[in-house]
Amino acid sequence: MANHPNALRKCVQAGWGILTNAYIKGFLPGLPPIYQGNLKQVCVPGMNCYSCPGALGSCPIGAMQAVFDGRHRQFAFYVVGYAALIGLVVGRFVCGWLCLFGLIQELLYKIPTPKLTIPAPADKPLRYLKYLILLVMVFLLPFIVRSQYGVGEPFFCKYVCPVGTLEGGIPLVLLNEALRATLGWLFRWKFFLLIMCVVASVFIYRPFCKYLCPLGAFYGLFQKVSLVRMRVDEHVCVDCGKCARACKMNVDPHKTPNSNECIRCRECVNACPMHALSMGIGALKPSAGEEAGEDAPAPSAEAQ
């Protein structure tokens, strides 16, 4: 029963991944190899490569760069507004529930091996890397750097994104002989990054989400502001630390309930023996104890 809420989350993650990549024809030999319909005018909320043969929607990070790197050097109001809207409503809930690449990393982490926690002195600065990637590779370089023909490049897609290699590159190369003949150093580089990411995911919980993903960084900026929030009822919390120990993103929800790093998976909420954590729209009304200004209760035996 303890795993029941987590099983629900896995079902939602898998169901959403299948639903948004349900273009079966893309996986069959023959043309066209990817979906070309109007649904692709809209982005899915998570990282999902639009060059995946099954993808029915667009990728927000790819779509932002597609506007930035165009000949007219335009700001991507449509996609940035869309992602900001999602961020304002749910924050990184998308990461915990609606991103296929997040699920893939979680499944890899289930492989039974010793697990690694990056020590805090290295972990903390590394977490900023994803913001740097968002700023430099998604916003600035596609906007600034131009070829002789006046167009830019999607720098993050081209040089970093392991999602594109896994969901787009590998299936398309396997299904298409003509593409196979054109493989070069760039594919080898991106394949190497993907392998690194896959291997790291076996030992570290969601390394791409923690350190590299520009979309997770973008949604993270809205965590403290979003409609959906987490709240700690400090009159009920007995400071047992169970929530922090349950969090595989290494957040201490008791201290920072709306940390940029929290993916809103709710594992801490379920782990709290005192039911002191809650998550929902507006994060919720104060408990009766808080309203009355009562003291916190003594720790229960279960919480020790």
Binding site: K40, Y50, S58, G62, A66, V67
Partner: peptide, 21 residues
């Protein structure tokens, strides 16, 4: 401003950069 058309045209053609080619 017509950004939807830009997104669509990028998304319905295989993105060579995304797949590493």
């Amino acid at each position: 401003r017509g950004e939807v058309a830009t997104v669509l045209s990028k998304a319905i053609n295989i993105c060579m950069e995304c797949i590493g080619l």
